[in-house]
Design a protein around this nucleic acid. Structure first.
Lengths: 206, 206
DNA sequence: TTATAGCTGTGAAAAAAATCACAGGTGGTA
DNA sequence: TACCACCTGTGATTTTTTTCACAGCTATAA
């Protein structure tokens, strides 16, 4: 048996979130889950198999149990500590974004010290030069980057120095880290727009 | 020769954006492009081949020409018209986000009419019930969805009714459209956080 | 002009992922 | 209990995507 693939992890996370929308007690079939997620029922079953057996051949999956199982296997039950680097409009919007109780937003950073004073929030704010030490002292796992493109590489190095484990990057530049243990997700708004635009063009050019 | 694959389109879009950071006149090799993008040089060359021949066997690719070629093939030169549905914190942040001149942000929607009046922007704002007709009359191609989860499906139907071609969804629910010609990209902040969190857990559990 | 170093274009091979088919359980019902 | 409808688990298959290897072309310099 091979180790779990990245797309499978993504689907299981989506599944986890979907299961939260169901009644706790009910049972649900792979067919229904697949339809809701827009993937084949086969994939659902195969993905769940990576976690070990959990289904009920007669009646489908127990919603509560499956959700717990996914959470356990994927480490979703241990709440992660998160921060935001760059408190412009997008950064402050994320700072206020309701992340639920799975994630704790514990710090915000900006290089502009005046800005730190004008933002109204209960979350602790720090100047950018303290990134490394705060990441370490507050035990932060994941960072959002919402700084201008030309500051990104600098920020990344400080985050990695502080021992960050994951980065969600909203800036329109690719991130490269020395350390291979840092997981990076690109979330470039203009970039995604471009991809969709290209898909539209290519599909209509047939 | 097969038609171009979705991952190839994504990489080409990233490449297009990367090329914008180079000097217009210079030449660049697939090896360097690959490193900057974090993919193999092979992939770069193969992707470019989908567009027809553009390289210079001796010295690499001409930055300006390649960029123009990508833009032309992927329809990136015709600026798309874009709107934002849901003007909460995230929605207004996107409304003000600098999208460059490839995309024109031409409309914002919200179901709360009072909110429409308090937002300062030069972009035209409309109540949510006008979505379909405005999409059609303003010729909007792509929509951002930044409404609460329980309003998403409703919004999607109106967008599709209006003839939308692409959707970028920030809400934490999967979108399903009847029409298969609508391209959807999920950009769920909490969801991506969860995926990264899972990757961290799985990698450390080895 | 000729040699050379470096780069691209591309068919082939390998790897990864999605899809399928079906055997084998399980709950419900009479 | 016995039957039936329904659902899962999973090895096999197909499709997709990535990676590789190398022939052939181009610029540069002597």
């Amino acid at each position: 048996m091979n180790s779990i693939s990245t797309p499978a992890i993504s689907r299981l996370c989506a599944l986890y979130q979907l299961l939260g929308q169901f009644e706790q007690q009910s049972c649900v079939s792979s067919a229904e889950l697949g339809e809701r997620l827009g993937v084949g029922a086969h994939s659902i079953r195969k993905d769940i198999n990576f976690l070990g057996i959990a289904g009920n051949s007669g009646a489908g999956y127990d919603v509560g149990k499956l959700r717990t199982l996914i959470a356990g296997s994927l480490g979703l039950d241990a709440p992660r500590r998160v921060c935001v680097v760059g408190l412009g409009r997008l950064g402050t919007a994320i700072l206020q974004y309701p992340l639920g109780d799975e994630f704790q937003l514990v710090a915000g950073f900006d290089s502009n010290i005046n800005r730190l004073e004008t933002i109204k929030t209960t979350i602790e704010l720090f100047p950018a030069h303290q990134i490394s030490q705060v990441i370490r002292s507050l035990n932060i796992d994941i960072a959002f980057i919402t700084v201008p493109a030309d500051h990104v590489q600098d920020v990344v190095e400080r985050l990695v120095d502080g021992g960050i484990k994951g980065i969600v990057n909203f800036a329109p530049v690719c991130i490269r880290t020395k350390s291979k243990d840092v997981f990076v997700k690109q979330m470039d708004i203009a970039g995604e727009l471009r991809i969709i635009s290209a898909q539209i063009s290519v599909s209509t050019a047939l």
